[in-house]
């Protein structure tokens, strides 16, 4: 299946897998290419529970957005939003309040173009093409979009994103820059891969992703806690995704969830 797919336009390098399309595939989406699926197969070998992990992460994002909606948040900044797939933030938020504003941020060309396609003609949601590790540029564009009022609390979402940020990019200072741009009462949601759960499988994933354009950096619970400096962590703190405020009875094994999730409120 590695031959050129006929419906892909000339000039697009579908031979280089992307994390966004890998995630889409794991979630059952069709917005992906052979190279993405080949990488996904390797990913699945290293972590057979990957589909579940993706599903649980996506479900955490949904619950986090809904929690923020309950807390009165009506504007969201979704950092590293990736390929629009099932249950996008604006869809979830609009179900609760059609007036909710969402600004998606991604850097990858195809993800951005795809998002634009989905959001065309939508006055309350947009995608800006920026690197989320450059908060100044992101915040400038977000202000420019006119969709986010930075004097009002903002829901900042980073679901399955920070594990693509290398330590040398200083994740703590990146979060701090966003934190400083939003008022007290704003929320931050973080989910990211950890080696605390299934360290062997995690090491396998790191190895698989090393060769892609999106190498991964799992973090320990205390490293993730450091991201929440200046935030008050909401109950139950930093936990595997299925344990974060689950809906109804939980049947998923938290030890095999791969990803820690947490939501904090800016002090």
């Amino acid at each position: 299946m590695s031959e050129r797919v006929s419906w892909v336009p000339e000039g697009v390098d579908v031979g280089r897998p992307s994390a966004a399309r890998l995630y889409d595939y794991l979630l059952g989406g069709g917005h992906n290419f052979a190279a993405d699926r080949a990488l996904a197969e390797k990913f699945l070998q290293a972590q057979p529970n990957a589909r579940t992990i993706a599903r649980l992460n996506r479900a955490f994002l949904r619950r986090a957005v809904l929690l923020m909606i309950d807390e009165g948040i009506r504007q969201f900044l979704d950092l590293g939003s990736g390929i629009p797939t099932v249950g996008n933030v604006h869809e979830i938020a609009r179900k609760a309040d059609p007036e909710a504003h969402v600004v998606y941020v991604d850097f990858e060309e195809v993800a951005v173009a795809h998002s634009q396609l989905i959001l065309e003609g939508d006055p309350r949601a947009t995608i800006i093409q920026e690197d989320m590790t450059r908060p100044d540029a992101v915040l400038r564009s977000a202000r420019h979009s006119g969709l986010i009022d930075f004097s009002q609390p903002v829901g900042v979402l980073t679901a399955g994103v920070f594990h693509f940020v290398p330590p040398q990019a200083d994740p703590n200072s990146i979060v701090a820059a966003y934190r400083d741009a939003v008022p007290t009462g704003s929320y931050l949601a973080v989910s990211q891969f950890t080696q605390d759960l299934q360290p062997e499988e995690m090491a396998g994933i790191v190895e698989v992703m090393k060769k892609s354009q999106n190498p991964m950096y799992p973090r320990t619970k205390s490293e993730i806690e450091a991201l929440f400096s200046g935030f008050e962590l909401l109950e139950p703190g930093i936990v595997p995704t299925p344990l974060w405020r689950p809906e109804g009875t939980n049947t998923d094994d938290p030890d095999r969830a791969g990803i820690y999730a947490a939501v904090g409120r800016k002090l």
């Binding site: 419906w7 892909v8 697009v12 951005v112 173009a113 634009q116 396609l117």
Partner: peptide
């Protein structure tokens, strides 16, 4: 189709 359009646009 969607991703094709997206790719064309990106390009």
């Amino acid at each position: 189709e969607e991703i094709k359009v997206a790719i064309v646009r990106a390009k």
